[in-house]
């Protein structure tokens, strides 16, 4: 298994005049509503613990107010936790002093923002080079490295343009290039594609996956969109009211939602694109030698075509090349229906 990149241990965050006192009350059993009503403190995060592994895309998802944007801002200490620890490569970043924290933000983590947050008075190239300028990289060198990232996100030729001259999708590519330019190991993406049109958004998701495959960054991605979470995330964490409800792969969460909230949340998703044939193959079912064969890692959707061709049974082959079992239309329908409780 890959090493843990970011470990979040029992992190809580309370907003208000006396966060520590309010947190003690929460630990004594007061809930979020009571805390707000009685002490006028807001519980942003409550006892969140999770591991983000190197090289994976970890999606944190939840509706607005769930605390997801608060949580991601803890990873570079834009927000300080009220309690708990945050380890980066095993190093407690909460112990960093101002200078160390600045160096950490300049070299180790980079962030992409929902509304792009580009500098309107600087050109695309200067925006992309911004993190390098801050770190004292000489101007010519910074602009050269910025140029490489601009090419990587497909914006060559726009180096001298200003952000307001670009479309939303192009602006977010600049935001992405800016985050890539510092060569940080971790990318924090705060609803990075939420402000974009659906088609452009899909293009950006595809591009991010390609970049991820090529560069092997650790990506923490915040979204409120389940389809986006399932498409991008190696692991998905579901957050509600500042507490973590479930962490797992998309298929795990769909197959075994941890509670009613998660179940309701995932009910409307297109399950056939997420669930894998291997998880639903019946090992006891024998197949004819001429039956169509499908991989265990294929989605149920891939089996549809075989059934549509008239096959009554589809054989499922596991990773070792052996036939692990078989799927019937009946079993596929059962798997799809399970979410509609």
């Amino acid at each position: 298994m890959r090493p843990v990149k970011i470990r979040v241990e029992n992190v809580s965050k309370v907003f208000g005049r006396d966060p520590a006192g309010a947190l003690a009350k929460v630990r004594a059993g007061m809930d979020k509503g009571q805390l707000k009503a009685e002490t006028d403190h807001v519980l942003g995060l409550h006892d969140v613990t999770l591991d983000i592994r190197a090289g994976e895309t970890f999606v944190i998802m939840g509706l607005s107010g769930s605390g997801k944007s608060t949580l991601i801002r803890h990873f570079n200490r834009l927000i300080e936790p009220t309690g708990g620890r945050i380890l980066f490569d095993g190093d407690d970043i909460l112990k960093y002093d101002a200078a160390r924290l600045q160096a950490f933000r300049r070299r180790k983590v980079a962030m992409v923002f929902q509304r792009f947050a580009l500098l309107p008075h600087r050109t695309v190239a200067e925006n992309v080079a911004y993190g390098l300028f801050l770190d004292g990289v000489p101007r010519a060198e910074a602009l050269r490295r910025a140029g490489e990232q601009i090419a990587l996100v497909g914006l060559s030729g726009f180096e001298g343009s200003y952000p307001a001259q670009l479309s939303g999708g192009m602006q977010q590519r600049v935001g992405l290039a800016r985050a890539l330019a510092t060569d940080a190991e971790v990318l924090l993406m705060d609803e990075a594609f939420s402000a974009l049109d659906p088609l452009i958004r899909h293009d950006m998701q595809v591009q991010l996956k390609e970049l991820q495959a090529r560069l092997g960054k650790t990506i923490v991605f915040i979204t409120h969109d389940l389809d986006e979470a399932l498409m991008l995330g190696d692991h998905i964490a579901i957050l509600k009211d500042g507490t973590l409800r479930q962490v797992g792969t998309g298929a795990e969460i769909l197959a075994r939602p941890a509670d009613d909230y998660v179940a309701r949340f995932v009910r409307d998703v297109n399950r056939s694109r997420i669930l894998l044939c291997g998880a639903f193959a019946d090992a006891g079912l024998s197949t004819a030698p001429d039956a169509p064969v499908i991989g265990a890692e294929a989605t149920l959707e891939a089996a549809f075509a075989a059934f549509a061709g008239g096959a009554p049974v589809v054989a499922v082959r596991d990773g070792d090349g052996r036939i692990a079992g078989a799927l019937t239309p009946q079993r596929v329908m059962e798997a799809l229906a399970r979410g509609q409780g």
Binding site: A103, A110, G131, D135, T182
Partner: peptide, 21 residues
């Protein structure tokens, strides 16, 4: 815009750099 200032902080701008850039 607070988000642009936040972006500068996120990229490691010191308070002085936030002010002047």
């Amino acid at each position: 815009d607070a988000e642009i200032v936040e972006a500068a902080r996120a990229f490691g701008a010191s308070p002085r750099q936030q002010l002047w850039t």
